[in-house]
Design a protein around this nucleic acid. Structure first.
Length: 787
RNA sequence: GGAUGGAUAGUCUAGUGGUUAAGAUACCUGUCUCACACACAGGUGAUCGAGAGUUCAAAUCUCUCUCCAUCCA
């Protein structure tokens, strides 16, 4: 009798060897050729963005769980397509590259800059893929796609052209969010908010031809010259007699009217507010509503326009300081207060957003809102509660999606403008176009027959690329057969923080192109938060790097922790203590395996005729475990199986069952009873391994192959069958645990008169076995040495 | 201001009407008992955020309030 497992402890070193095995055997290369009637399962994996280090522990947990989805689907007999892509377009890499090389994008040759970005991406991507692989992600790494590849960008452009032809794209000149640092228009979804301290300046505005003045409180004195109205609350008694009168704008010598508007809060500042183009979104609305004429105040380079007169061509900060200075000199400032105010900032560069009017391309979405609501109802959400995030977002959409960006590292907008008539000429879809450096693919303007063109220099918002991932992975426009079998895809797994972007935009884009939803299910995971329960962010400095943790504890420990930490959809706390707990369970499992591997395998083929009652009892509990796991796996909630497996394996199977049958398996004289125990213990252990495989693929693989010497490895097997044979036996579980505990307690309380210490567990004891446990009496007597 | 989720032993979580509220961890006390000291056995510890209501019965349902987290104004 000897163990088949030589290593005394489970360690991450063993995982590395297993990874090599898998790589050699090509275990997870996706199968492109679906057979007739085969069930398939397509995962629209989020393409991670390699935007520098460190990576986020929540993201590593996220990908671990997506892998569990894939493994569960395989265990349920599906042919799984699990692609992996890397999202590489957009502003983050540009900003990261600028910092890394200490350069400015706009002071550089475009081509040179693109090369540097690519280099940066290649570097970070490499490390990234290594982490994913070391986590045991069973995706198709041989075929990793990149959103900045020629092939991907071709698809981005051709789907754009298709939408253009459907009349869904238009050029709009209207106020939009603009990031001065990034030098581009950005979408609402790219804005976050930050509480910032700012000056609230109280300025005197004199009434026309009068020495009477009113006080205007503003946080944007630099926009004084773009003021087109003063608004007050109609209920406000202070201004009741002034309504409709004209006020003189200080310094700039222009007149504006005092207008009633109920949006004004009489308690804020002085109760009188200046309306400028544009201090904030509210101003935009007021300009529209009151039919005010826009005064352009800020240039795309972030400097004041000519309308600022002597203050023109200044940065906003300079303009603000100089205007305040001038107002002070003229004695027009009553006071200045400091107050904290929620400021919209650019998600990427953290610069405050300005609202300026620029020409940009828009994709229609407002007209389509009611249909989008209808389609949203057809997606199954895991968990259901997160559907609301999408619905809230849909509700709040008020303008179309600006899709053009004045940046470099992204997919080019494929348009050439006629030099003579400015008509936008669109090429035929099918290849990748770079209008800023390429000759146009046509000789004459489609509008005026002129033969000179100017290429578009702008690129797309990155969500234009990532929002077609379901089309790309199903080989849309490339392999019709494959596409027909795989689209719509089965599931979109993603974080709840990008519902209003990735999930929403994917829905929109794919509906425009295919008139079908891109997936049937959306699986939404919560954030990884710190040990206080607060969201991790770089600015807070509480981001945990997953790499050292994975290295220290191993992938399976990390995965088990991730699965058992929180219910699906809820945020999960990251604490090292919890990770250590998972490691302890794997160690327990390893040792159970070492024990079991001492004994010969009795399987279905040589199953004993008669099973002992104790064996029937644990098989009943095993069935219950399988059911519980199935429930959890069906809901794609790995919290349920991970915790039930732990509970069963440690607190029932190891603590009570194994102790009960030890005497039998060591006693070779009673062959039938021994065989019954060995059959059962192997059956239980095999089931535990099968059930745990999606969560901990490494240790289950190792134990399976070592103990069962099975050619067909565990990750190609199905979940255990549920037999429902001895269900009523499971009712006795609590009684068994209670009785064992009673005896252990009794022994502990009894002081031996030989050693003067409590009785040891193998010392004999006199006790009556209760009637309902009579079934197990022979095992109980042997286990406790009952006399 | 609006939305979503949460408030259960020192800490983290499970528990959607019914006997002594479950588990993990921490803590205390024993034990190297032939798979495991990364273990085993035992123990201390919660009037389930506050208040009111429904009910024979509430951590669980309803209402009000307080606090926390996240998102949107």
């Amino acid at each position: 009798m000897s163990t088949k497992i030589t290593e005394k402890v489970w360690s991450s070193e063993i995982e590395k060897r297993i990874l090599d095995d898998w790589e050699k055997d090509n275990v997870f290369v996706n199968n492109d050729n679906f057979k007739e009637n085969e069930n398939y399962y397509i995962i629209d994996t989020p393409p991670p963005y390699p935007s520098g280090k460190p990576w986020h522990i929540g993201a590593a947990a996220h990908y671990s769980q997506i892998d569990m989805i894939a493994r569960v689907a395989r265990s349920n007999g599906f042919n799984v397509v699990f692609p992996i892509g890397i999202d590489r377009n957009g502003i983050p890499v540009e900003i990261y590259t600028e910092k890394k090389y200490k350069i400015r994008m706009r002071n550089m040759d475009r081509k040179e800059f693109l090369k540097l970005c690519e280099h940066t991406l290649d570097e970070t991507e490499k490390e990234f893929i290594e982490i994913l692989k070391s986590l045991g992600i069973s995706a198709n790494f041989k075929d990793t796609y990149h959103t900045d590849s020629t092939e991907y960008r071709t698809l981005t452009q051709s789907t754009f052209i298709e939408m253009w032809k459907k009349g869904l794209i238009y050029l709009g000149d209207r106020p939009s969010n603009y990031c001065i640092d990034c030098g581009t228009t950005i979408a609402d979804s790219e804005i976050t908010y930050l509480d910032k301290e700012t000056k609230l300046v109280y300025i005197k505005f004199f009434l026309k031809d009068s020495t009477e003045f009113i006080i205007i409180a503003t946080t944007r004195p630099e926009l004084l010259f773009a003021c087109q109205a003063i608004i007050v609350n109609p209920e406000d008694k202070r201004y009741r007699d002034k309504q409709g009168k004209n006020l003189k704008i200080p310094i700039f010598d222009r007149e504006v009217k005092i207008i009633n508007h109920k949006s004004v809060d009489p308690n804020f500042g002085s109760g009188a507010v200046m309306v400028c183009s544009y201090g904030d979104l509210n101003d935009v609305q007021l300009f529209r509503e009151l039919h005010l004429e826009e005064i352009k105040s800020i240039n795309p380079n972030g400097k004041t326009t000519k309308h600022a007169k002597q203050f023109s061509n200044l940065s906003l900060k300079e303009a603000r300081n100089k205007i305040i200075e001038e107002l002070q000199d003229q004695g027009l400032i009553e006071k200045i207060e400091i107050f904290s105010h929620r400021t919209p900032i650019c998600e990427r560069s953290k610069t405050p957003i300005e609202i300026i009017s620029l020409e940009d391309y828009y994709l229609k979405q407002v007209d389509f809102k009611s249909e989008l609501f209808e389609y949203s109802e057809k997606i199954k959400f895991y968990p259901e509660m997160h559907r609301q995030i999408l619905l809230n977002w849909l509700n709040s959409i008020s303008i179309d999606w600006p899709i053009s960006r004045r940046r470099y590292y992204g997919t080019e907008i494929p348009i050439w403008y006629c030099k003579k008539c400015k008509y936008p000429n669109i090429p035929e879809p099918g290849r990748y176009y770079r209008p800023w450096e390429e000759e146009p693919p046509f000789d004459k303007c489609q509008n005026c027959n002129n033969d000179e063109f100017e290429g578009e220099e702008r690129i797309f918002d990155t969500w234009m690329d990532s929002s077609i991932s379901p089309l790309y992975i199903t080989k849309f426009n490339k392999n019709d057969n494959f596409y027909k079998k795989t689209y719509p895809t089965t599931i979109r797994p993603q974080g709840k923080d990008i519902i209003r972007t990735w999930l929403y935009y994917t829905m929109l884009r794919c509906l425009y192109i295919t008139e079908q939803l891109p997936w049937k299910n959306a699986w939404i995971m919560g954030y990884g938060v710190d040990d206080k329960g607060e969201k991790m962010s770089k600015s807070k400095g509480n981001v945990i790097d997953p790499l050292p943790i994975i290295k220290k504890y191993g992938a399976d420990t990390f995965r088990l922790w991730s699965a058992s930490e929180a219910n699906l959809g809820y945020d999960f706390r990251c604490s090292e203590q919890k990770i250590i707990n998972s490691q302890k369970f794997l160690s327990k499992l390893w040792n159970i395996g070492r024990f079991i591997s001492n004994f010969e395998l009795i399987d279905e083929a040589n199953k004993p005729q008669k099973l002992n009652s104790t064996d029937k009892w644990i098989l009943a509990e095993l069935d219950n475990l399988s059911k519980k796991c199935n429930e959890g796996y069906n809901e794609l909630n790995f919290f349920i199986p991970s915790n039930s497996i732990r509970e069963f394996t440690w607190n029932i199977f190891a603590a009570h069952y194994i102790e009960l049958i030890k005497p039998r398996v060591y006693n070779e004289s009673k062959d039938e009873e021994r065989k019954s125990a060995l059959y059962t213990i192997h059956k239980c252990f095999k089931s535990i391994l099968l059930l745990l495989e999606p969560i901990c693929p490494f240790i289950t693989y190792e134990l399976w192959t070592k103990i069962y010497l099975d050619k067909k490895i565990i990750n190609q097997k199905m979940f255990p069958k549920i037999n429902n044979d001895f269900q009523e036996m499971a009712l006795l579980t609590q009684r068994i645990i209670q009785f064992n505990s009673e005896i252990w307690n009794r022994k502990k309380e009894t002081i031996s008169n030989i050693t003067n210490k409590p009785l040891s567990l193998k010392d004999p004891i006199k006790i009556t076995i209760p009637n309902e446990l009579e079934l197990f009496s022979s095992d109980l007597i042997a286990m406790h040495n009952i006399i």
